[in-house]
């Protein structure tokens, strides 16, 4: 039996003297799973994602991702962790407007020291695989539709072949058609074995993509359901 790709043990996160954003949370995610994290605003979804991404540190407890204990990493080590082991997709894409699509996608690989040509080859293959045309690679993100931009963001997240793909409201800024497009893409990626953690309000997305769904309420897991369409239950 392989070790879980995410292990959160007794994790709490407090921002101030008030109620904790996460309260003694335990969570394990297996490789290949597509976990959807649902919950109302302020339930702790984003905090959970930030802790897994190494963007923030827990006040208590430990977080291990892909065999690496990340809650005590230095800033530089956190950056290397994100670069090498995870990919992130954001609600508002967070593409760099001054870079071409290809440069955006290749950026994490270049930061990791991959030679430019190799990084761009990988980017081109990814973009093609995600349904973007070669001419899109040379354009800038501002010229693309919302769905296309999110595909670019996904390609960028995958460029370093991460063990884990984190997505924060990936369809939150998209129209219905684009949202469906991105949902299909994420489902497809998970079907190919990519471990996925989705933070979303979008039940349809969770239903379509997730193999497991947890619902957070006041920083604790209120519900944990396995299987597709679990969110609907």
């Amino acid at each position: 039996m392989t070790a879980p790709i995410i292990q959160m043990r007794d994790v709490s996160k407090k921002y101030d003297a008030g109620r904790p954003a996460l309260d003694h949370l335990d969570l394990e995610v297996e490789a290949g799973e597509a976990l959807a994290v649902l919950g109302p605003s302020g339930s702790g979804k984003s905090t959970l994602l930030n802790l897994v991404a190494g963007l923030d540190r827990p006040s208590e407890g430990g977080v291990t991702v892909a065999g690496l204990r990340i809650d005590g990493l230095s800033e530089a080590a956190s950056a290397r962790y994100r670069r090498d082991r995870i990919g992130m997709v954001f609600q508002f894409f967070n593409l760099l407007d001054d870079l071409t699509v290809a440069d955006n996608v290749a950026l994490p690989a270049r930061l990791a020291g991959t030679p430019r040509d190799e990084a761009h080859e990988r980017a081109a293959r990814l973009l093609e695989r995600l349904g973007l045309q070669p001419h899109h690679a040379r354009t800038h993100p501002g010229r693309l539709s919302g769905g296309q931009r999110q595909r670019v963001a996904v390609a960028r997240a995958l460029i370093n072949r991460p063990a884990l793909l984190l997505a924060d409201e990936p369809t939150g800024a998209l129209d219905t058609a684009s949202a469906a497009e991105v949902t299909g893409l994420l489902t497809e990626l998970n079907a190919d074995g990519q471990t996925l953690v989705l933070v979303t309000h979008d039940v349809a997305l969770a239903n379509a993509c997730a193999t497991r769904t947890i619902e957070l309420v006041d920083g604790a897991i209120h519900r944990d359901v396995r299987g597709r369409t679990a969110a609907a239950r």
């Binding site: 991404a53 800033e75 994100r82 670069r83 370093n160």
Partner: peptide
């Protein structure tokens, strides 16, 4: 600032 956040999220180290 947001771009810097993106860079950091994508794995840019403080030195970089």
């Amino acid at each position: 600032t947001r771009d810097l956040g993106v860079f950091r999220a994508l794995g840019m180290t403080p030195w970089q």
